[in-house]
């Protein structure tokens, strides 16, 4: 075991990690940040996506020890400083972009990565970017709507309806 240091949601943190400790375990078990969900644990579903140095990463498919010094943002870091929901989270609530909510942390983090790179994506760009985030509940329509709303665009009409 060695100590691995990172900045998580703007806070300097340190926790023990073995070689095999995944970033998802480091966050959930090491730091108690259980907002990051592990769905498949096989790199397929995207529920575990967090931002590492601003880019989306499947936290079940990265070793904590490989990320010494990294800046990580998890869904806990998406809320406003007063604890109220951030813009993306609020849009998911407003547009019913979730049902069971299991995929939502990954959806929110992938959305954050998308909007940082492309602040006004088209519907097609949203669907393409979220390809690696699987949802078993919503059928995606309301997720796409929520992302359109979060980017300040009209969430009313979607092409596929």
């Amino acid at each position: 075991m060695t100590k691995v240091n990172m900045t998580v949601n703007g806070r300097a943190v340190s926790a023990e990690a073995e070689g095999r400790t995944l970033l998802s375990s480091y966050l959930r078990e090491g730091l108690g940040l259980t907002g990051t969900h592990v769905g498949c644990d096989t790199s397929q579903c995207g529920a575990c996506v967090v931002l590492v140095d601003g880019q989306p990463v499947k936290s079940c498919t990265a070793f904590a020890a490989d990320l010494e010094g990294a800046e990580v943002t998890t869904v806990e870091g998406m809320a406003n400083p007063d604890g109220s929901l951030g813009v993306i989270q609020q849009a998911f609530q407003d547009y019913h972009g979730l049902q069971c909510g299991f995929c939502t942390p990954g959806m929110v983090m992938s959305t954050a990565a998308l909007l940082a790179e492309n602040p006004k994506p088209s519907e097609e760009e949203v669907r393409h970017y979220l390809e690696g985030n699987l949802c078993r509940c919503t059928g995606y329509q309301n997720i796409v709507r929520a992302v359109m709303a979060a980017s300040g665009q009209d969430a009313g009409a979607l092409a596929a309806e």
Binding site: S43, V49, P56, V57, A62, A113, G132
Partner: peptide, 9 residues
């Protein structure tokens, strides 16, 4: 290739 998260790493 894959999806955005796969392409990051």
């Amino acid at each position: 290739i894959g999806d955005p998260a796969v392409r990051t790493r």
